[in-house]
Amino acid sequence: MPVIDINTDTENLTMTVTAEFAAPIERVWHAYSDPRQLERFWGPPGWPATFHTWDHTIGGRADYSMTGPRGESSRAYWEFLTINEPHGFTVLDGFSDDQGKPNADMPAMRMEFAFEPTGDGTRMVTSSHFDSLEALQQVVDMGVIEGTRAAMSQIDAVLHDLREYAQGKGTRVEYLDDTHVSITRLVDGPRDLVWRAYTEPELIKQWMLGPDGWEMTECEVALKAGERYRNSWAPVGDTEGEPFGFEGETLLVDAPRRAVQLERMQGTDGPDILNDMNLYEEDGATLVTVLMEFPDKDTRDMILATGMADGMESSYQRLEQAVLTV
Rank of each mutant, 00 (worst) to 15 (best):
93 D>H: 13
115 F>C: 05
66 M>P: 04
69 P>S: 12
76 A>S: 10
89 F>Y: 07
74 S>V: 11
91 V>M: 00
116 E>I: 09
115 F>G: 08
95 F>M: 10
109 M>P: 06
82 T>K: 14
64 Y>N: 09
90 T>G: 01
80 F>P: 00
88 G>C: 14
115 F>I: 08
95 F>H: 15
113 F>C: 00
118 T>N: 11
73 S>K: 04
57 T>C: 15
67 T>Q: 04
87 H>Y: 14
110 R>A: 06
77 Y>R: 00
70 R>A: 11
76 A>C: 12
54 W>E: 03
105 D>S: 15
61 R>G: 00
93 D>L: 09
104 A>M: 04
83 I>M: 03
53 T>M: 07
61 R>H: 03
57 T>F: 10
106 M>R: 15
54 W>R: 05
86 P>L: 03
106 M>A: 12
66 M>W: 03
100 G>H: 06
71 G>N: 08
108 A>Y: 10
56 H>Q: 14
86 P>I: 06
72 E>R: 01
61 R>I: 03
101 K>A: 12
111 M>Y: 02
54 W>Q: 05
98 D>E: 15
89 F>G: 00
71 G>D: 02
59 G>S: 08
107 P>D: 10
53 T>L: 01
75 R>D: 08
90 T>N: 00
110 R>P: 04
67 T>H: 04
71 G>T: 07
103 N>S: 15
102 P>A: 08
100 G>K: 06
110 R>D: 03
93 D>M: 07
63 D>K: 08
105 D>Q: 12
109 M>Y: 07
60 G>H: 07
74 S>F: 10
80 F>I: 02
80 F>Y: 09
103 N>K: 13
72 E>M: 01
66 M>D: 00
91 V>I: 06
71 G>S: 06
83 I>G: 01
69 P>R: 09
92 L>N: 13
56 H>T: 09
76 A>L: 06
57 T>P: 09
54 W>C: 04
109 M>E: 09
63 D>Y: 10
77 Y>A: 00
64 Y>R: 09
88 G>P: 15
73 S>L: 01
103 N>I: 03
109 M>F: 07
87 H>M: 11
116 E>K: 14
103 N>L: 10
111 M>D: 02
112 E>K: 04
72 E>A: 01
89 F>Q: 02
85 E>N: 02
115 F>Y: 13
63 D>M: 07
104 A>R: 07
83 I>R: 03
67 T>G: 03
93 D>T: 05
97 D>G: 06
67 T>P: 02
74 S>H: 11
84 N>D: 12
65 S>D: 08
95 F>G: 11
99 Q>N: 08
71 G>Q: 05
60 G>S: 05
88 G>Y: 12
69 P>K: 15
104 A>T: 03
117 P>S: 15
89 F>L: 07
67 T>S: 05
91 V>Y: 00
86 P>N: 05
59 G>Q: 10
